[in-house]
């Protein structure tokens, strides 16, 4: 019969308004906390919470209490703030070569320091222009020594375009919270989450710092 479909549709929308838990907006960066949220933070029943904290209850009803949630993000998330480990980097510039946009610039030391076998070049310039970066992660995939990792942040807005260029100093100073994108060894660590910990350089690679012998076998003889 005509009209039944219309009424069925009304039923569906009614179902959706009645089951409020279906609401799935993630509010970012923060959201107005209701009493229930505050009580949950305090591990309390919201009625008893309202009695014990009347001031906060009133404030939350006025929408004056703001809490910020962690945005649900997987460790593989390809974020900004590249994590770069100076100790692992040999300055081979594979990342620069593989970048589809050519936004990585590497200059190694010209003076002849650390030129011996098994030593790493000093990196003088390592600029990543994240203003043009599309976060494809190919540079990370290309790095043979696991020195470069995608980061996990995404709040890198700047007022000047030049500030978007991550230079070597910033890379050195930055908190090392690498994403597990193309780094299976980080994934094998149980419960690893890039938000919590800063990871030391000897933990992030597939292997320890290559020995002289290794290097000879791997890169010179072949």
């Amino acid at each position: 019969m005509y009209g039944l479909g219309l009424i069925k549709g009304l039923g569906i929308t009614l179902k959706n308004i009645l089951f409020l838990q279906r609401r799935n907006t993630t509010q970012y960066p923060d959201r107005k906390a209701s009493i229930i949220d505050l009580a949950k933070l305090d591990n309390k029943n919201f009625i008893s919470y309202a009695f014990t904290n009347p001031m906060k209850t009133l404030k939350s009803m006025m929408g004056m209490i703001v809490i910020s949630d962690k945005v649900d993000q997987h460790p593989r998330f390809r974020g900004e703030e590249f994590s770069w480990y100076e100790e692992r980097c040999t300055g081979c510039a594979s990342c620069a070569k593989f970048c589809p946009l050519g936004i990585i610039k590497i200059v190694t030391d010209q003076t002849g320091k650390n030129y011996a076998e098994g030593q790493n070049y000093d990196i003088e310039t390592f600029d990543i222009d994240i203003g043009r970066c599309m976060f494809c992660g190919l540079c990370v995939e290309a790095c043979p020594y696991d020195a470069l990792h995608m980061g996990s942040g995404f709040e890198e807005g700047q007022y000047k375009r030049n500030d978007l260029v991550i230079d070597v100093e910033r890379l050195k100073k930055a908190e090392k919270k690498p994403s597990t994108w193309f780094r299976p060894q980080l994934e094998q660590k149980d419960d690893y989450s890039p938000f919590d910990e800063e990871i030391a350089w000897d933990k992030v690679g597939r292997h320890q710092k290559p020995s002289k012998k290794d290097l000879k076998n791997k890169w010179i003889r072949k």
Binding site: T13, N16, I17, L20, R23, T25, R31, K32, M62, G63
Partner: peptide
């Protein structure tokens, strides 16, 4: 109300609700 019908939150930043 329409936001709730659509599983959204609707305007909720200024003032209570």
């Amino acid at each position: 109300v329409i936001a709730r019908f659509q599983n959204r939150s609707g305007p909720n930043r200024w003032g209570p609700f």
